Simulated scan of single mutants.
Amino acid sequence: MNRVTEKESNYNHLEQMSIHEVLTNINHEDQSVPGAVKKSIPQIEALTGAIVEKMKNGGRLFYIGAGTSGRLGILDASECPPTFGVPYDWVIGHIAGGDSAIRKAVEFAEDDQLQGWKDLQEYSINEKDVLVGIAASGTTPYVIGALNAANDAGLVTGCVVCNLDSPVAAASKFPVEVVVGPEFVTGSTRMKAGTAQKLVLNMISTTAMIQLGRVKGNKMVDMQLSNNKLVARGVKIIMDETGVTEDRAAELLEKHGSVRASIDNCRS
């Protein structure tokens, strides 16, 4: 396959550039990412639709990847409970090498084609669930092996990759291919490819949560009230939705412990 993610950068002699030149050129490259994501919306829509269908019937969403890709999956999964008030086992991110690999690379963890599916057994993954492989190159053995095993087990599978016609895409029933071109630093897929993956994961999880009823209007009515900033946001949402005073909104929130419940009980 032709790996665009490994192609030579459009820039050279980076060490001779000024700070301003480096920043400007990185920003110039980054501007191409949203356009590449836009071209992939039909693929993203197909995958998200399959995810929503499974989750409405009690399934879970799993992300699996290595390195930057694995970390991005964990990031997206970890933000769903506080943002949308869902259980921590609705969206699960897993990285090659386990939790220690979140902070420090685990050598050769991504090269084991059998380990990915073995690791997922910890969660009793089954045919109700969806597995999305994340791999900028689209060639990560750890991810390919997990997707192939998931297909054999009857799961819905998808991926987010940044090369066309990759082995990861071939192993996915719903591939998403976002081709952003060569990186500013040759092969450094934490840059444009990572940005593209982050955008796509945001789109998938946010759309799924909206479809699952976890947003009202445009508000996070099920968010966890885990700090003063979020409590204040909750009070404002209640005020906006019901027209009550700030004091009354705060009373409702303290009583019911939930923005949604406060709004519902105010109107009942």
Rank of each mutant, 00 (worst) to 15 (best):
R3K: 14
R3W: 03
R3L: 11
T5V: 08
N10P: 15
H13Y: 15
L14S: 10
E15V: 13
E15L: 14
Q16P: 06
Q16D: 00
Q16G: 15
M17D: 08
M17G: 05
L23Q: 11
N25M: 12
S32C: 05
S32D: 05
V33F: 03
P34R: 03
K39P: 09
S40I: 04
I41Y: 01
P42F: 01
A46N: 13
A46K: 15
I51Y: 07
K54Y: 01
K56P: 00
L61V: 14
I64F: 00
T68Q: 05
L72D: 00
I74Q: 06
I74L: 07
I74T: 08
A77H: 04
P81W: 02
T83L: 05
V86F: 10
P87M: 04
D89H: 14
G93S: 12
I95D: 13
G97N: 09
K104I: 14
K104Q: 14
E110I: 09
E110Y: 11
D111W: 05
D112G: 07
D112C: 13
L114R: 11
G116M: 10
L120C: 09
Q121I: 00
I125D: 05
N126T: 09
K128E: 00
I134C: 12
A136P: 08
G138M: 09
T139W: 13
P141K: 01
V143G: 07
A146N: 12
A146R: 02
A149F: 04
V156C: 10
V161K: 11
N163I: 08
S166L: 07
A169M: 03
A171Q: 10
S172Q: 05
F174A: 08
E177M: 14
E177Y: 07
V180S: 14
V180E: 14
E183V: 07
V185D: 00
T186G: 02
M191L: 15
M191V: 04
T195Q: 07
T195M: 08
K198M: 02
A208W: 01
A208M: 15
M209E: 08
G217R: 03
N218D: 12
V221K: 10
A232W: 05
G234M: 06
G234D: 00
I238S: 03
I238N: 04
G243K: 06
E246G: 11
L252F: 03
E254S: 15
S258Q: 11
V259F: 11
A261C: 02
R267E: 14
